[in-house]
């Protein structure tokens, strides 16, 4: 079970906003992590380890930079809930073992709402509402359950 407060974003959150181009040449993800969402004041003010990011449509669009989900994981994002994810970001996040939740009603969640995610249910403890989660394809779920594509491949060999 995952429990944390929501840090809320809108539509089309692109990977340039998650980690800017001029930071990508830094040597490690740890060195880039302090610049995560550096121009989003609410993230900087409210986010603490274990929180849940909530977006609306097309979260993670744009560049293929894996540094985007990697810095989110490094900062301790417990899960990302959105109405939908961009393709490359979705794949990169699953590869890193970062939990993604597709939820058609994600837009109803507000900044700082307390959320609880348990199997196929997303519960908003602040509003008392339950939201349905779209199940991940079994193959993707298997990668996520292994903790990412590398542990998954190591398990196969």
């Amino acid at each position: 079970m995952i429990k944390g407060k929501a840090i809320k974003f809108g539509n089309n959150i692109d990977t340039d906003q998650i980690i800017g181009a001029h930071h990508l040449s830094l040597a490690t993800i740890q060195a880039m992590a302090p610049f995560t969402f550096e121009h989003h004041a609410h993230f900087i003010t409210h986010f603490t380890r274990g929180d849940i990011l909530v977006g609306e449509e097309n979260f993670g669009c744009g560049s293929s930079r894996e540094q985007a989900p990697a810095v989110l994981k490094e900062r301790g994002v417990a899960a990302i809930v959105a109405c939908g994810f961009a393709r490359i970001f979705f794949r990169n996040a699953i590869n890193l073992g970062l939990r993604l939740i597709v939820c058609a009603e994600a837009a109803e969640i507000m900044e700082l709402d307390m959320l609880e995610i348990d199997n196929d249910c997303l519960r908003n403890l602040t509003t008392g509402r339950d939201h349905e989660i779209e199940p991940l394809p079994p193959f993707v779920r298997e990668i996520l359950d292994c903790g990412g594509i590398i542990p998954y491949l190591q398990g196969k060999n």
Partner: peptide, 10 residues
């Protein structure tokens, strides 16, 4: 198509 660094490493 574009992919991330982990997919490329694999």
């Amino acid at each position: 198509t574009g992919m991330g660094s982990t997919d490329v490493a694999v």
